[in-house]
C-alpha cells in the first residue's frame, strides 16, 4: 500500500531542498573565489608583464595589438582607467598622445574636407607629422581606431564611422551623423569615386526622392560635400574627403 504524504514528509523534503541549496551556494562561492583568485593572479601577471614590456608595447605595433587583445579579453582596459595602477604605467600615454595628434590632423584638414577624413589619409598625415624615427612610424590602423574611439568622451564632436570593407572615416565636426548620412558615405566610399547623384542614390539605396534630397542637402549644409552643376548632367555631390587630389594635397 502506498503511504500517503504526511506533514513529516513535506518537512523532510523542504529540509533536503534547503540543504541542497546551501551546498550549492558553498560550491558556487568556492568556484567564484577560485576564479577571482585566478583572475587576480592573471591580472598581476599582466601588469607585471606590462611594466616589463612597456617600451616594447610603445615601439612594436604588432605587440601592441596583441597586448590590447589580451587585455580586452579579460576586461581590462589600460586606456580607460585614468587612475590607479595603469595610469602610473603610462601604457595609455601612447594612445593619448596619438589621440591628440589625431585631433590636430583633423583640425588642420577641416578647411578642406569639412570635417570628415578617411582613416588612411589620417594615418598618412599623422605619420608625416610624427617624424622620421621608426617607432613613430609604425602606427597601425588598429592603433588609430583605438585612440580615436577614446575621443568619444568629448561628446559627439568626434566619432569613427565605419564605411564598409574595413574602411573608416573620422568625423571631427559637432553634430551627429544620422544613419542616412552614414549610408551615403558608405555608398560613395565603396563606389571608388568621390561623388554621387540624386538618381543614383535613390536607385542604389531604394530611397524616395524626399529622403535622398534631404540627406544630400543636409550634407551640403554641414559642409561635407560640394555640389557640381554641370548643365549636361544631373547635379552631383562631391566629397573632398574622398577626392584623391585633395587627400594627396599638402
Amino acid at each position: 500500500m502506498r503511504r500517503r504524504a504526511g506533514v513529516g514528509a513535506v518537512h523532510k523534503q523542504k529540509l533536503e531542498q534547503e540543504k541542497y541549496k546551501d551546498k550549492g551556494t558553498v560550491i558556487q562561492e568556492n568556484q567564484f573565489e577560485q576564479m577571482t583568485k585566478q583572475m587576480e593572479v592573471f591580472r598581476l601577471n599582466l601588469e607585471e608583464f606590462a611594466t616589463k614590456y612597456k617600451n616594447e608595447i610603445k615601439k612594436n605595433s604588432q605587440f601592441r595589438r596583441q597586448f590590447q587583445e589580451m587585455c580586452s579579453s579579460i576586461g581590462v582596459d589600460p586606456l580607460a582607467s585614468g587612475k590607479g595602477f595603469w595610469s602610473v604605467l603610462g601604457i595609455g600615454d601612447f594612445y593619448y598622445e596619438l589621440a591628440v595628434q589625431i585631433v590636430e590632423v583633423c583640425m588642420a584638414t577641416t578647411h578642406k574636407n569639412g570635417g570628415i577624413i578617411g582613416l588612411d589619409e589620417l594615418r598618412d598625415r599623422l605619420i608625416k607629422a610624427r617624424g622620421r624615427n621608426k617607432q613613430h612610424q609604425e602606427i597601425t590602423i588598429d592603433d588609430l581606431l583605438c585612440a580615436a574611439r577614446k575621443l568619444k568622451i568629448f561628446g559627439n564632436g568626434f566619432c569613427v564611422i565605419p564605411v564598409g570593407e574595413g574602411q573608416y572615416m573620422v568625423q571631427s565636426v559637432p553634430g551627429e551623423l544620422s544613419m542616412d548620412h552614414t549610408a551615403v558615405l558608405k555608398l560613395v566610399s565603396t563606389s571608388g569615386s568621390a561623388f554621387i547623384t540624386l538618381p543614383s542614390l535613390m536607385e542604389q539605396l531604394n530611397w524616395e526622392t524626399t529622403r535622398a534630397t534631404n540627406v544630400l542637402n543636409s550634407m551640403v549644409t554641414e559642409g561635407l560635400c560640394w555640389i557640381d552643376k554641370d548643365h549636361k548632367k544631373d547635379v552631383s555631390y562631391w566629397f573632398p574627403s574622398m577626392f584623391t587630389e585633395c587627400i594627396k594635397s599638402s
Partner: peptide, 24 residues
C-alpha cells in the same frame, strides 16, 4: 594648380556660405 582646380564642383559657386568662402 591647387587640388581644387581638378575638383569639378570648384567651378560651381557653392550654396553653403562656409564652403563658398573657402571656395572663393
Amino acid at each position: 594648380w591647387p587640388w581644387q582646380y581638378s575638383f569639378p564642383p570648384f567651378f560651381t559657386i557653392q550654396p553653403n556660405l562656409e564652403t563658398r568662402k573657402k571656395q572663393l
